[in-house]
Design a protein around this nucleic acid. Structure first.
Length: 794
RNA sequence: GCCGCGGUGGUGAAAUUGGCAUACACGCAUGCCUUAGGAGCAUGUCUCGCAAGAGGUGUGGGUUCGACUCCCACCCGCGGCACCA
């Protein structure tokens, strides 16, 4: 029989047109809901990356399978469209970012549709749409009113050549990403978000969610909670004090100096007259250094003596106060107690400047390095003899009683710098009034005005500051002269709550209706890149907890389950990049081999969570598999399938279902291939019953070819509306039993299931091959593993 | 330095309550078909050995009837953090 050849170009577009109404998520339904979310992309000018295709296709398979399993599935898509590339492009070409973004979105959407992705396009969102960012601004105002959004002088990265403030991600190796000039530090008022107020809850609530373990660990480490003690060191001849934070208060009798950071406000105030010049010089040098230079690993520790002393409250000893740039200003108050005997950094510092090294923990002071272990206290007055653990408790208690210290928890997490001095972002809806100060502008949305010039202002303000007609307003409360805030929000703002908007995209009364939020949230499964673990994922959890506190949402956590995908590298193992010329364009693969081939290949190429290199040959293997499936499905004409084929299909259905849940897309596809290989040799045992079921099972992975085959087999309704194939645990009647001698496989036999152990022994020992080997050997032991093997130890 | 993940054929990899190591695919080789093959099909493809057989999952040790899988020590690679007191 001659059959038509598989030609994806002919069938894919045809079916895509018919699917437009299949994937609508219904608000409220008798079916259980299932909300699957993949991170929405920045619509760049380069178009869809094959990496996007990988995770979108894989979760498209999950979404389609879930629908067939009877869930009311929400699988939405949108655009995270604020950001620098569009602004930079506007600077270069004069074309307004909104136009570029519109074109790019159209292109992305065309590509996604061409892949047959089953997004519900009725719920498309765009962070740059005023109807959307109205609510981003609304959330900002709620945070502002609760004091969680506040202004503060902060050092920022500054490019002296572009005359513009740089976000951390725009500073690469200490240099401006655009022009390559070394970035400097500058002080500027910045909007901040008090994420540190939520630090404990962000850690504790991880126990409520199902995230990959590595994601949880990375967030916990990033937040960096550490429990310790604050100790007050009074300045000599002054009533001021320096407060230090330490996790090793048991070593407090070994303090031989206090070191404060150059930024510390004390630095200018406590310096003795004869040391002023030296200190000023040192601090000036330290401040010029960028964060990058200061944190170089090999850097030698430097410092300068202030000429002042303070008093150790435990033994009333006088200790010198130094300034050193190895002390981090923004952590623990920017001051440390120096215990060179038991801290390696302090040891190096003390060695360099000839400071005293005083041993207070027994353990043998080494000539080359500090002894940093815990142990028994010595030279510590009446605390001597205690263990470190006991001493930490007792000394902290003593400090409390004498009003010279207290327990204290510190975090590495810093508050979130929320301002950007750029044009292409959400305006911060705040008005600065001469009389009232900062006033919330409730008249939302505060629309981003069209400007003529996107060039940075050169003063460090955003290009908006030059728009006097926009900037100069009247105070909404007292009608006095006032100015708008000209800073805009960071990229992270719009993405910190977008998953809520999908529940109710057209609502203009609230960010989404309570009922719909209650129905759809939390997200059941959220997949994205590992690179977003400590920024986007943490920021959005923070905002969501805040919204929970003001009762805007019903759950304390936004995502029930979080997995991550590995990036797709170029064939040469490097990142895909225009400048390397190694970019794979999905359009070309779709055109030459078909969307289904691309989908299958990207799921098959390797473990989903691992970075993996593209392989141009490998894609062809995926196409071969689909060709074989096509030919088999259309040529098989047996009436009924044999028991063996039915069993094999049952096993396949089980494997595929389980692998989808576990993001093991690669082994799911491998099992399909295995099944096709098996069936190819047994076509007259393979009936239409199994072929139909196989087509349904493959439909989430390769939706177009499955739809075509399904119709060619005489069905009318879409394959994507079929019920997911059922499988059952098979009680096989006969089992393959492996016979080992000393754990080496020597023979295999077929036995009845449920055979008694004694009988199994008897049968195994009576095999000719086994008899031959055992001829002159003594049996020591026989181990039987039910249904698997028998091991004869000799 | 700290935290996390990993190391299995020529390549991407599979196999976990400890039980057949290398499934599936790529590549390669040989053959068939073909005017042709950059299409398709068939067979082979961890190492040594003609074979029977033996060895083999980064290295060394351990537990076990049995270890890719568990334990200890080490080496290497990747990712994140990095003077956080």
């Amino acid at each position: 029989m001659s059959i038509t050849r598989y030609n994806p170009q002919k069938i894919e577009g045809k079916w895509q047109k018919t699917w437009t109404n299949l994937y609508k998520a219904k608000d409220f339904s008798k079916k259980p809901k299932f909300y699957i979310l993949v991170e929405f992309p920045y619509p760049s000018g380069e178009g869809l990356h094959v990496g996007h295709c990988r995770s979108f296709s894989a979760f498209d398979a999950v979404a389609r399978a879930k629908r067939m399993q009877g869930f009311n599935v929400l699988y939405p898509m949108g655009w995270d469209a604020f950001g620098l590339p569009a602004e930079n492009y506007a600077i270069k070409t004069g074309i307004h970012p909104s136009i570029t973004v519109k074109e790019n979105i159209a292109n992305f959407k065309r590509q996604m549709k061409g892949l047959g992705l089953s997004f519900d396009w009725d719920r498309e969102i765009n962070t740059t749409d005023p109807k959307y960012y109205k609510w981003t601004q609304w959330i900002f105002l709620q945070l502002f009113k609760k004091g969680l959004a506040y202004k503060k002088k902060m050092p920022i990265n500054w490019c002296p050549s572009c005359k513009i403030g740089l976000a951390n991600e725009e500073v690469v190796d200490g240099k401006c990403e655009r022009c390559g000039a070394p970035a400097e530090q500058r002080e500027k008022e910045q909007w901040m978000m008090a994420i540190t107020k939520y630090a404990d809850r962000l850690i504790d609530d991880l126990s409520r969610v199902d995230y990959l373990e590595k994601i949880k660990t990375q967030q916990i480490n990033w937040i960096g909670k550490s429990i310790g003690t604050e100790v007050d060191f009074k300045l000599e001849n002054s009533d001021r004090k320096i407060v230090v934070f330490t996790t090793r208060v048991d070593t407090v009798f070994g303090v031989t100096a206090i070191v404060i950071s150059p930024e510390n406000f004390f630095a200018g105030e406590i310096v003795a007259k004869d040391k002023k010049i030296a200190v000023q010089e040192y601090v000036k040098n330290a401040k010029v250094k960028t964060e990058f230079e200061r944190t170089k690993i090999e850097k030698e520790k430097t410092g300068v003596f202030t000429g002042s002393y303070c008093i150790n409250p435990l033994n009333n000893e006088k200790v010198p106060v130094w300034i050193g740039d190895y002390v981090v200003a923004s952590y623990g108050g920017g001051a440390v107690m120096m215990v060179p005997a038991h801290d390696q950094r302090d040891y190096e510092f003390a060695k360099k400047y000839g400071l005293e090294i005083k041993e207070v923990i027994e353990g043998g002071l080494n000539k080359e390095k500090a002894y940093t272990e815990c142990g028994k206290l010595i030279n510590s007055s009446h605390f001597s003899g205690l263990s470190s653990e006991e001493a930490i408790k007792k000394i902290t208690q003593w400090l409390k009683e004498n009003n010279a210290g207290r327990e204290r928890i510190q975090y590495k997490l810093r508050d979130w710098v929320f301002s950007r001095q750029h044009y292409w972002g959400e305006p911060i809806p705040i008005i600065h009034c001469e009389k009232c100060g900062m006033v919330a502008d409730e008249n939302l949305p505060v629309k981003l005005p069209f400007v003529k010039n996107y060039q940075p202002s050169g003063t460090g303000e955003s290009p908006l500051s030059a728009m006097s007609s926009w900037v100069n307003v009247k105070c909404p409360s007292c009608k006095s002269k006032a100015k708008r805030e000209t800073d805009t929000m960071p990229n992270w703002a719009g993405s910190s709550w977008y998953f809520l908007r999908y529940a109710d995209t057209k609502n203009d009364k609230a960010l989404a209706s309570k009922e719909k939020l209650k129905y759809w949230l939390p997200v059941d499964w959220y997949n994205g890149g590992m690179e977003h673990t400590t920024l986007h994922l943490l920021y959005s959890r923070f905002w969501h907890k805040f919204l929970y506190d003001i009762k805007a949402v019903a759950d304390p956590e936004p995502y029930s389950k979080r997995t991550s995908h590995g990036i797709v590298l170029a064939q040469d193992g490097r990142k895909m990049s225009k400048s390397w010329g190694n970019v794979v364009n999905p359009d070309i693969i779709v055109k030459e081999l078909g969307a289904d081939t691309l989908r299958i290949y990207e799921m098959f190429m390797g473990p989903f969570d691992q970075a993996i290199a593209w392989d141009g040959q490998g894609v062809k293997g995926a196409r071969r598999f689909l060709d074989r499936f096509w030919n088999l499905a259309l040529s098989s004409n047996a009436v009924k399938s044999s028991l063996e084929i039915k069993h094999a299909f049952n096993k396949l259905a089980k494997k595929v279902t389980e692998d989808l849940e576990a993001t093991k897309f690669n082994t799911a596809i491998a099992s399909f291939m295995e099944f096709i290989n098996l069936v190819s040799g047994k076509q007259n045992e393979t009936g239409k019953d199994v072929i139909k079921q196989l087509t349904v099972l493959l439909a989430p992975f390769a939706p177009h070819i499955a739809e075509e085959i399904w119709h060619k087999l005489g069905n009318k309704r879409s394959v994507h509306l079929q019920a997911w194939p059922k499988y059952h645990s098979v009680q096989e009647e006969k089992l393959d039993l492996i016979i080992q001698i000393n754990s080496k496989v020597r023979d295999r036999i077929e036995i009845q299931a449920g055979m008694a152990d004694e009988k199994i022994k008897e049968v195994a020992l009576s095999q000719e091959k086994i008899k031959e080997i055992l001829k002159d050997k003594e049996i020591k032991k026989i181990i039987i593993v039910k249904g698997r093997l028998i091991n004869i130890v000799v």
